[in-house]
Amino acid sequence: MGLFTKFVYLLGVRKKEVNVLVVGLNNSGKSTVVNHFKNEEERVSEIVPTVGFSVERFQNQNLAFTAFDMSGHGRYRDLWEHYYKDCHGIIFVVDSSDRLRLVVVKEELDLLLQHPDICNRKLPILFFANKMDCKDALSSVKIAAGLGLDKIMDKPWHIAASNALTGEGLQEGVEWLTQQIRDVILSKN
């Protein structure tokens, strides 16, 4: 990268563009999370189940995010892998009130981590323990333990309890992700 462009980025005049992948089981709140990151005027009032995927853009601290909001429906989970290759970060949304399917979440997460396009890269993964407002929601610590996150050694990860309806906890999580990606990019340069 040329000296000038590097200079521009350091000063934060021009935004760096990054791709993030938003995955998780169906009905975990992925589209709602992404919807919350968008500008006020672009938000949609009604979220319907995503079929396939949808592309959304938002910004955080001078980083332009392109989020590939994937469908979490069982039928479409095989399609996530098509988008692993060129993403800079992963947002994994977990429905913390759905104890029953936590094993499914774990299985999907393991598959994701073992994928050749993921396993050898230092990709930051952000977990949202979503729906924290639900009565019987598990705490983020319990979820981290349930998913065996402590075994992830080669990738930076972070788990944040969130409520995507109100936006609680989202900002904190995405700020962590932004910082991580920024570090990776800077270290590459």
Partner: peptide, 12 residues
Amino acid sequence: DDVIIVTSSLTK
């Protein structure tokens, strides 16, 4: 295969 992946993008 799996062309339905673009369904949501197109409905949008």
